[in-house]
C-alpha cells in the first residue's frame, strides 16, 4: 500500500495578514503563523505572564533608549511566518513599525511551560533560519534560562537550521544580550 501523508493547506504571510484584515480571527486570538501553519499558542497562566512582564522590564532597563521592547508583538519573520514571541527587542521606537511589523529582532525570548519542546525545536529552527542571532528560552519548568546563539544549517532540523551554541543559566547566573554586551542581567530578575 502506497503511503500518503495528510498535508494541510499552508498560508503565506500575505494571506495571513489578509485573514486578519478580514476579521476571520477574533481580536486577541492567540495564533501565530509558523512556517505556513496557523498555530494556536499556549494558554497563559499567571507565572507565564508574570515572566513576560519581568523580562520586558529587565530588558528595557538593560537596553535603554533607542530600543523597543515588544511583549507578544508580531514579527514579520519571512514569507510564511509571522510569530508573536513573548518578548522581542528591536531597534528604534514604536513609530518605526507603524506600517510594517519588525522583521529582525536583536533578541527574541519565549517563556516556556507546556510549550518547551516546540519552543526549543520548532521555533528555535525557525528563528535560526531567519538568522536571529540571540534566542532565549525562559524555561519555567526547570527555572533556568536557555541561551541559543550561532545559527547553522542542519538538514535534520524542522526548518533546516538550528543553533550551534546552547547555554543553560540557572537563577544565580547573569546574562548579557549580544546587542547590549555591557548589560548584566541577573536571571532571577526574569523568573516569576
Amino acid at each position: 500500500m502506497a503511503s500518503y501523508e495528510i498535508r494541510t493547506r499552508r498560508f503565506s504571510r500575505a494571506e495571513y495578514d489578509r485573514l486578519i484584515e478580514l476579521g476571520v480571527f477574533q481580536p486577541g486570538e492567540p495564533i501565530e503563523l509558523i512556517g505556513g501553519e496557523l498555530m494556536v499558542a499556549e494558554p497563559q497562566g499567571a507565572p507565564h505572564y508574570t515572566a513576560i512582564m519581568k523580562t520586558a522590564k529587565a530588558l528595557e532597563a538593560a537596553f535603554g533608549p533607542g530600543w523597543e521592547v515588544r511583549p507578544q508583538g508580531p514579527i514579520g519573520l519571512d514569507d510564511d511566518s509571522e510569530p508573536e514571541p513573548d518578548v522581542a527587542v528591536v531597534p528604534g521606537g514604536p513609530d518605526d513599525y507603524a506600517t510594517a511589523h519588525p522583521a529582525r529582532p536583536v533578541l527574541t525570548v519565549e517563556v516556556s511551560e507546556s510549550s518547551l519542546a516546540v519552543d526549543r525545536k520548532h521555533k528555535g529552527s525557525l528563528y535560526a533560519r531567519a538568522g536571529l542571532a540571540d534566542y532565549w528560552v525562559l524555561n519555567l519548568v526547570d527555572r533556568v534560562l536557555e541561551v541559543y546563539r550561532e545559527p547553522v544549517r542542519d538538514a535534520a532540523a524542522p526548518f533546516g537550521w538550528r543553533y550551534a551554541r546552547a547555554e543553560v543559566l540557572d537563577a544565580s547566573a547573569r546574562v548579557a544580550p549580544l546587542a547590549a554586551p555591557g548589560a548584566s542581567i541577573p536571571v532571577s530578575r526574569l523568573l516569576p
Binding site: 498560508f11 494571506e15 489578509r18 485573514l19 478580514l22 498555530m39 494556536v40 499556549e42 507546556s114 510549550s115
Partner: peptide, 25 residues
C-alpha cells in the same frame, strides 16, 4: 512536571472556510 504538548493547528469552521474562498485566499 513538564507537560509537553504538541502545538496545535488553528481549526476553521465552514463559515470561515467560505470567507477565505470569497476573499480569494
Amino acid at each position: 512536571m513538564a507537560v509537553e504538548v504538541a502545538a496545535t493547528r488553528r481549526r476553521f469552521t465552514r463559515a470561515e472556510y467560505y470567507r477565505m474562498a470569497e476573499a480569494g485566499i
